Amino acid sequence: MDIYTCELDPDTKTVLRLYLFTKVQNVDVIKNNIINGIWNCAVIKASLIADPLQVAVAANKAVVAEKLNSMVTKTVFAEILYNLSLTKNISQSLNKFGIDKDNSLLFCFLITDEKNDTENIISKVEGEQRPISDLAKYSNMKDIKSLYKLNNLKGNEDIVDIIVSKMVTKNFISH
C-alpha cells in the first residue's frame, strides 16, 4: 500500500510515516486511545490536509521543538496538530485538526530506532486503508481555504506553498 514516508531533521533521527484510512468505524475507540496516551500517534482529519508536505512540515517543527525542550503542547503528537494550525490557541488547534466524527483520517507516526508502534496501531483501525496518493480525493479545498484564510485565492496550484509558509511563520506574523 502506498504510504508517505519522510526523514525529518537529521538531528532528531526520526522518520515520519503517514497512513490514510477511510470509512473508519471505530473513531471513538481511536480517539480514547489517543487522549489516554495509549496510542503514540497523531490522527488528523484528512479533509483539512491538501498535501502530505503540510504534515511533514508540522511534524518536523514538532520533533525539533521536542529535542530543544521548547514544545508549546504536552506531547509531540499534539504539537503536530498545533503546528498545522494558524492559531496560537492549543485547544482550537487540537479540536480543528484532531480526530472527531470524521471517518477519513490520516494517521501520523514518528518512528525512531527505539520506537515504532505503527503496525500494532494500524492493525486495530477498522477502516479501509487507501493509498496516500488518494489524499486529494478526501481533501475539502473549501474548508482548507477558509481555515488558512485563502478564500480570495482563485486556483489551487500554489495552495500547499502558501499554507506551509503561513504555518512556519505563525509565531512571527498574525495571519
Rank of each mutant, 00 (worst) to 15 (best):
L16W: 14
R17S: 15
R17F: 13
L18Y: 05
L18D: 05
Y19C: 02
F21Q: 04
F21C: 02
K23L: 12
V24S: 15
Q25L: 06
Q25P: 01
N26I: 02
V29L: 01
I30Y: 01
I34H: 12
I34P: 07
W39G: 13
V43L: 07
V43G: 07
I44F: 12
A50R: 07
A50T: 05
D51K: 00
D51N: 02
P52G: 03
L53Y: 10
Q54H: 02
Q54K: 02
A56P: 04
A58C: 05
K61D: 04
V63K: 11
K67E: 00
K67H: 07
L68F: 06
T73G: 03
T73M: 05
E79Y: 03
L81W: 14
Y82T: 12
N83A: 05
L84N: 04
L84I: 12
L84G: 00
L86Y: 03
L86H: 08
T87Q: 04
N89G: 01
N89K: 03
K96I: 15
N103A: 08
N103G: 09
N103W: 11
S104P: 13
L105P: 08
F107C: 05
C108R: 09
F109T: 04
L110V: 05
L110N: 00
T112V: 05
T112R: 15
E114C: 09
N116P: 12
N116Q: 10
D117E: 15
D117Y: 12
S123F: 09
K124W: 11
K124Q: 08
E126R: 06
E128F: 14
P131Y: 10
S133G: 10
K137V: 13
Y138Q: 10
S139P: 03
K142E: 14
